[in-house]
């Protein structure tokens, strides 16, 4: 049950209606940034205030919420947001991706494929993909309106010229539905293909910048690239030290002050459930191994 003294899910109903209108517009124009009246939240900017307002506006009493930060359910940001909704909305929470109806995320898309009816809410620090080259908001809006996106490739060009390949590895720009250029928030480009034609609804909230945008289910999302330098995701030579997965996004963890390190899944739910199912990795197979 929600605590007394708060409206359901913290925001007042007028604000929720305003945000829902923005969300409806965002869904109707995939990838288009809809301005909204972002409210003061009991968290500082940069802690997911945009995502929280989106979640608060769409969450119902029957929903089950999962919150992840860098793929993990147990980091400070994830725990505090989960608790926030448990207290203000009294909704059920889960760490299991397939059990959640709403997933709020910072920096990752879960490894477990999302299904129809699920909603993924992204926390977005900077929504405007053209901001790096054009500081004027009026001008970037015009560039969106006129689809003047060629300059975005200048950045990818610089990457190849400097590093021999496209080195941008997160917040990698995409075209949504063949129209709007969009920043997917700082998720690794490893996750970009998961956005494409996902059966789940994807909502993006930027609290400080006061923008909401969306990718409706089954919408095409294409990562920018060059004909002779096609888009590629990160690959690892290692597998997860704990669950042995060779298909998930791995975090490098330093295990001691002697250069010891290991790679583990960044998605804690995915990794834990694989281990429950009996999968092992180098560290779990060999107890003498590095610091497991």
């Amino acid at each position: 049950m929600a605590e007394d003294g708060y409206n359901f899910a913290y925001l007042d109903e007028q604000t929720k209606r305003m945000i829902r209108r923005a969300i409806l517009k965002a869904v109707a124009i995939p990838g288009y940034q809809v301005p909204f009246g972002s409210r003061e939240m009991p968290l500082p900017y940069g802690w997911g205030t945009g995502g929280i307002q989106v979640t608060a506006s769409i969450i119902g009493r029957d929903d089950t919420l999962k919150v992840i930060d860098q793929g993990a359910d147990d980091t400070v940001n994830a725990v505090s947001i989960r608790k926030f909704f448990a207290r203000t909305a009294g909704v059920g929470t889960t760490e299991r991706t397939e059990d959640a109806t709403i997933l709020q995320t910072r920096h990752r898309i879960p490894e477990t494929p999302l299904g129809p009816g699920q909603i993924l809410v992204y926390q977005v620090p900077i929504p405007e993909p053209l901001r790096w080259l054009e500081p004027r908001e009026a001008e970037t809006r015009k560039m969106h309106a006129l689809e003047e996106y060629g300059v975005m490739h200048v950045r990818l060009y610089e990457d190849i010229a400097r590093f021999g390949h496209i080195a941008t590895s997160y917040d990698y720009p995409v075209r949504v539905n063949g129209r709007y250029l969009m920043r997917p928030s700082p998720i690794p480009k490893f996750d970009n293909p998961k956005m494409d034609r996902s059966p789940a609804l994807q909502l993006f909230g930027a609290g400080r910048e006061k923008r909401i945008y969306a990718i409706p289910p089954h919408t095409g999302v294409r990562s920018l690239d060059f004909d002779d330098h096609p888009f590629e995701v990160q690959k690892w030579e290692d597998v997860c030290a704990l669950c042995g997965s060779g298909e998930s996004f791995l975090d490098e963890i330093v295990t001691d002050d002697r250069g010891g390190r290991m790679f583990v899944c960044s998605d804690t739910d995915y990794c834990g459930r694989r281990r429950e199912a009996g999968h092992t990795g180098p560290a779990t197979r060999d107890p003498e191994g590095s610091g497991a």
């Binding site: 003047e148 060629g150 300059v151 490739h153 200048v154 060009y157 190849i160 690239d225 060059f226 004909d227 002779d228 330098h229």
Partner: peptide
């Protein structure tokens, strides 16, 4: 290269 990319050049 910017102007070329602006008019659709996509071959690095």
């Amino acid at each position: 290269g910017e102007r070329l990319m602006a008019v659709g050049a996509r071959h690095y």
